[in-house]
Design a protein around this nucleic acid. Structure first.
Lengths: 359, 359
DNA sequence: CTGAAAGCGCTTACAG
DNA sequence: CTGAAAGCGCTTACAG
């Protein structure tokens, strides 16, 4: 009888390990899963472990999922909007922490209408995303046996663990305030798809401005040719031309430089940018308009992307500890799948302002 | 007897559908899977389809995978290096095309040493990555029953479908050549992790320079404070300070501006950048050194990232049709899982140069 | 301390 | 044209 192994075609199963170790199949499972409530003699344990190692045994996860009813897979549905640069650190840390607990993290960016969303083929134990799922998505997940969904469709209103909001906007406002700026605007790129996130960050910045006794902090949209607009929001759009010359716009939109000068004329001296892309677009327009930074206009971005250090002038920006947030995410997830209540008083990692040349 | 459905806790199975449609369980499978070689009467077919629809039946993918031995999952292992901005378009298109054929695409960025790599929990039919897998990874995949691995570990040497190399470097050289530049360098950021990709692109650029009768195109590494170096490559490093003032470097490295002037003094007028980050770092140094672009120095990036349009001056860059490449990837994958040979003469989508202000 | 056995929900020859 | 039945490789009460 050929011993199954890396050489033969057939995959090694628990039966093979049981044979090799001279025990029953169930015992193999007990040893390998550290099943509680079983008392296995140390000798048996070692024999099983050694046999499994020797044969290169890997449990078949489909069989395991079918028998146990749990896949040990966590599905993370990525947001629609461009993901921040540091998401990878975040996910790497979360993956590591979940792996230690025996879970696998799968990230999913769902394009348009697929016929089989990933939760259908993966049978995840838990699905989590940054924004609420549509009713039909929830129904589909439930039909696929997903036990836990976050944000919880039964308690709409918000995430238990905020993946999208940090205290960045507050910090941006504080920073500009400390440096003597009083009249601020909140600026985002027109055509970005993260409208809910823009609104949330703008709201947070506004609240902080109010708390500091500053005037109302308006939301301005900044056009940029590199960005394809999703919906036109021409109201307060600021058009930016890459060359300052080759403009073919039909509408008589003000040039970016003119608009910026308008801001300055209105007494605005500080810009809270939604993200570093918006900060760069505005800083670029300021460079072309020969507006001095930070003397005439101060700008603080959000995300601390490579763009912030690359840009000339280098962009001040808010940095978050992505790795710590990734671990917090894993922590949240593990508590949920285990059905344990979340410990109270856990601290979200605090972001910091990295000051560079624009503030 | 309660009819199982969205309301009851129990998940709907094929047995429920069979009951509702008044047929056997096997027939349900035949209808839903369009099993070839079965002749089902139209009436039966419709009854089954309607019952499945009504009950919201979703096949249990774990059971299906266990019984059939195929998971219909494709695992895409992301490269180690920062992924290009347009990867998302690429993956979205690939996901869509694979979905149509009944397959799911899962992307995987593996952090450090996890105890259970994703191919262990997913049982993918095929694993594909941009660079060859280590021997231990291959062994692990084989032990987990992965049938197909690309790049093929048995035929080392390269990908059948190039995910990493396009004809971008050739185009960059052509573009600079057309615009009258003769002495060029190839520049990458020091500390980037994509060393194999840097070498490949540099090689392609060099070959094209040779074909055009240009002098040898050296590889230069550019330091940038925003990038954490993986390995030090101090040999020909170019240090870039974000403020031009607050430098605390111990070593007496030349300033970025000085180094750039060195290039100019050596007669170099064109830079083929590995990616847009490298292009931006060099363009930024040029701005600070008051070197005119493209009059004194022309730069062409690669990837056409948002950075290229954001930067001042806006960066010329090579753009690839990511969506078309994503479809080509799906096509490749589907041929492989079906065991069909790849049609010959398929064309990789051709990239183009987007000329902006640096060339 | 260990094993025999049922069951998870499918697929797939095989038999009518 | 349709159904009865074995089998995929696990987990998990249950019985010794």
């Amino acid at each position: 009888m050929a011993v199954p192994g890396p050489d033969t075609g057939r995959r090694v199963t628990a039966v093979d390990v049981a044979h090799a170790a001279g025990v029953s199949r169930a015992t193999v499972g007990f040893v390998l899963n550290d099943t509680p409530g079983q008392t296995i003699s140390e000798g048996t344990r070692q024999r099983v472990l050694r046999a499994a190692e020797l044969l290169g045994y890997r449990p078949n996860s489909a069989a395991r999922a079918l028998a146990s009813g749990r896949s040990r897979i966590i599905l993370f549905v990525l947001p629609d909007w461009p993901v921040e640069f540091r998401l990878r650190h975040y996910l790497d840390e979360a993956t590591l922490a979940l792996d230690k607990a025996g879970y696998s993290l799968v990230t999913y960016s769902r394009p348009g209408q697929v016929s089989r969303p990933l939760w259908e083929s993966l049978n995840p134990d838990l699905v989590i995303g940054p924004t609420p799922f549509s009713a039909s998505d929830v129904a589909s997940m439930v039909a696929c046996g997903v036990r836990q969904i976050y944000p919880d469709p039964n308690r709409p209103g918000g995430l238990d663990l905020s993946l999208t909001i940090d205290s960045g906007p507050e910090l941006q406002v504080d920073h500009l305030h400390e440096r003597g700026h009083r009249k601020l605007v909140f600026a985002a790129l027109a055509g970005g798809r993260a409208s809910s996130l823009v609104a949330a960050r703008h709201g947070a910045a506004q609240a902080q401005a109010r708390a500091l006794g500053l005037p109302t902090l308006d939301l301005k949209h900044v056009d940029h040719p590199g960005i394809v607009p999703a919906e036109s929001s021409t109201a307060d759009a600021l058009t930016h031309s890459p060359t300052g010359a080759s403009r073919t716009t039909g509408k008589a939109a003000p040039t970016a430089e003119d608009a910026l000068r308008g801001w300055l004329a209105a007494g605005i001296t500080g810009v809270v940018a939604f993200d570093d892309d918006a900060a760069a677009a505005i800083a670029g327009a300021a460079v072309r308009a020969r507006i001095r930074m930070p003397a005439d206009l101060a700008i603080v971005g959000h995300g601390d992307s490579p763009l912030a250090t690359m840009f000339v002038p280098a962009l001040s920006s808010v940095r978050t500890d992505s790795a710590a947030r990734g671990r917090a995410f894993a922590d949240f997830t593990l508590h949920k799948v285990a059905g344990r209540p979340l410990p109270v008083g856990r601290l979200a990692p605090k972001p910091t302002v990295v000051r560079r040349e624009t503030s």
